[in-house]
């Protein structure tokens, strides 16, 4: 089970059937697997904020929802997470490629990489930081159960070293 397969298998285990996404290079293989899965409705979006809006509608329509995104997209989504997700208690599984972490080659990723955990804390969004494929597989299923119980987003931060 490689790093992308672990996430994909966990999404299947959690019965996620509606995914919105905006690419990060580290999500490439996972996005292909999701796109090829006939049991998952996959909606590529133009901005992560929009993705959270679409996923909220899909949740109302009975779907188990996840977003696949880069951590920079969290900055694009702060308002929707507070004034839609927190306000109405809507669950979503947030699979986040955490750039700006150990080994980052692009300097522009560093500031948002540092800010990411603090933004999640301020938004009261629980997050996990699995380091290995096995750990990710176990954590993701639990995270979705937690999201449903809490009626909130739960984030999985996957650092550069994870992939």
């Amino acid at each position: 089970m490689d790093s992308s397969e672990a996430v994909y298998n966990a999404l299947k285990e959690a019965e996620i059937d509606f995914i919105v996404s905006l690419p990060c290079i580290n999500l490439g293989k996972l996005l292909e697997m999701v796109e090829c899965d006939p049991e998952i409705i996959h909606v590529p979006v133009t901005r992560e904020e929009e993705g959270f809006g679409i996923a909220a509608g899909a949740y109302f329509g009975g779907k188990n929802t996840a977003i696949l995104m880069q951590n920079s997209g969290l900055g694009n989504s702060v308002n929707v997470l507070a004034s839609l997700y927190e306000l109405y208690k809507i669950p979503i599984l947030m699979i986040i490629s955490h750039r700006g972490t150990q080994g980052e080659p692009i300097i522009a990723q560093i500031p948002m990489g540092k800010a990411t955990p603090d933004i999640l804390k301020v938004l009261k969004i629980p997050y996990f930081n699995p380091k290995t494929s096995e750990e990710a597989f176990k954590t993701i299923k639990k995270a979705w159960d937690m999201a449903k119980t809490n009626g909130s987003g739960v984030a999985i931060l996957l650092e550069i070293s994870y992939w």
């Binding site: 809006g53 679409i54 509608g57 109302f60």
Partner: peptide, 14 residues
């Protein structure tokens, strides 16, 4: 801004 997006997700899911 999110009303149109919420509507889209709802339309796609039922």
């Amino acid at each position: 801004g999110m009303a149109s997006s919420i509507g889209l997700g709802l339309a796609l899911s039922q």
